[in-house]
């Protein structure tokens, strides 16, 4: 594969996979800059070993796994920093809504984020890949290197745990 062909193939992969991995990374880290850095690092790793993947799917699942791992690593470091400096996390701003609705929405988002933070990585990762990455159970299994039935159980357990942490009726849903 010459340089031109390699770059074209890489660009094709980037356009296909980036929209998935940036969402996954963002919803793990809750920080867009950090998510971009994570994706950048993962794609450069992919470019350096592009020839070692036999197909697009192999590269895609490998990349998702790398992004997932880098994102959770970042989150771990951030948690340490937060404990040390009591830093206030980035909260997205809401410009469309006003007043009570805005407050309710903000409160709901905070509660959901807090609940998601309490999930262990083995439950949170498949749920995020399902909800934000839009991957099916088979794809999640390939990305996380676990069986499809294991994905099914983990997603169910993640939802069950969230259901307990977010009692229906207490959380505002837009």
């Amino acid at each position: 594969m010459d340089d031109k062909a390699k770059k074209d193939y890489f660009e094709r992969l980037y356009k296909e996979i980036f929209p998935v991995v940036i969402k996954v990374s963002y919803h793990v880290t809750k920080d867009l800059d950090a998510a971009q850095d994570v994706c950048q690092e993962a794609f450069i790793k992919l470019y350096n070993r592009l020839e070692s993947f036999p197909g697009v799917e192999d590269a895609k699942f490998w990349l998702i796994r790398v992004v997932k791992n880098l994102s959770f690593n970042y989150l771990e470091h951030e948690k340490v920093k937060l404990r040390a400096f009591d830093k206030i996390k980035h909260n997205p701003s809401f410009t469309d809504d006003t007043g009570e609705k805005q407050l309710l929405k903000k409160d709901a988002v905070e509660k959901v984020n807090q609940a998601l933070e309490q999930l262990p990585e083995n439950l949170k990762a498949p749920l995020i890949l399902r909800e934000f990455g839009g991957l099916n159970y088979k794809e999640i299994g390939a990305a996380l290197d676990i069986s499809e039935s294991n994905v099914k159980i983990r997603i169910f357990r993640a939802r069950e745990a969230l259901g307990k942490l977010l009692p229906v009726g207490e959380v505002y849903v837009p």
Binding site: Y14, F18, C39, F94, V109, K111, V112, R159, L162, V173
Partner: peptide, 29 residues
């Protein structure tokens, strides 16, 4: 409801992020 509450948060501009990150990657490459 659980799924809707997860998606309650407004998402940032991922398209802009895609463009910016591509430029950075190409610079490094």
């Amino acid at each position: 409801l659980i799924s809707a509450s997860i998606h309650a948060e407004e998402e940032p501009d991922f398209q802009m992020a895609q463009m910016n990150t591509w430029n950075k990657i190409m610079d490094i490459v």
